[in-house]
Design a protein around this nucleic acid. Structure first.
Lengths: 112, 112
DNA sequence: CAAATACATAGACAGATGTCAATTCGTCTG
DNA sequence: CAGACGAATTGACATCTGTCTATGTATTTG
């Protein structure tokens, strides 16, 4: 089928309305950036699929990465508001944040 | 309410199964990276909301960025397989790819 | 054909990102 | 308290990213 291309006049370009309000776009980008890494994406998937909070040390055992790198990735997820931490003695347990925006939950439902 | 934390034994950590197959995770990250920029996210939103293909020159008029930067962003979307280009004379028209995976469509439905 | 127009490419550069080794900080336990 | 252990922080480094200016490539039109 032929695509209907709009008529154009040389030298005349028109700004189009942007669909997302600035703050909303900003928040979306924050979340997308946090998820846009293989390790962090899998981490979030693990947390989404896990009833109980997951210990950081199990993440360290899961991925072929150094402990500081795991710690760094988890920190990024925390900064984006995607996960909560519960510290108990030596251990730090993480879980999906309980205050995820519905849109964010929907996003995770699509991804996993 | 009290969170039920798993029992732990010192020195014993367990790898957990990762939820996404490597190839699938890889593709998801590719898409997330492509969307994880305010300009590109708005571009995709515009294309999603537009019946007819959109001319690059209108994007150049829409965002406060140089023409090569717009070109660069659109190229990133193209490399991620999110958009198709139709060239007609001087102009280049872009639209959402016609072969988006259903999951990708669902992702965009959540975002916009 | 020459000038103008739309777009892409190349090169440069500052800042962000992913990774690691080394260190520090807290907490438990002998 | 001293050592061991889990986790976070720091500093370093290579790579990636977003942006720009300058240049190149097609295409249209006078």
């Amino acid at each position: 089928m032929k695509t209907a291309l709009p008529e154009r006049v040389r030298g005349v370009c028109c700004a189009v309305p942007i669909p997302l309000e600035r703050a909303r776009a900003s928040r979306s980008v924050e979340i997308l950036k946090a998820l846009a890494d293989p390790t962090r994406l899998q981490m979030v998937g693990i947390l989404k699929g896990s009833e109980a909070p997951v210990c950081i040390c199990d993440f360290t055992a899961t991925f072929k990465l150094s402990q500081p790198t795991i710690s760094h990735h988890i920190a990024r997820l925390r900064e984006a508001g995607l996960v909560d931490v519960v510290k108990e003695g030596l251990w730090a347990y993480y879980r999906l944040s309980g205050r995820l925006e519905p849109k964010t939950r929907a996003l995770l439902d699509v991804l996993f």
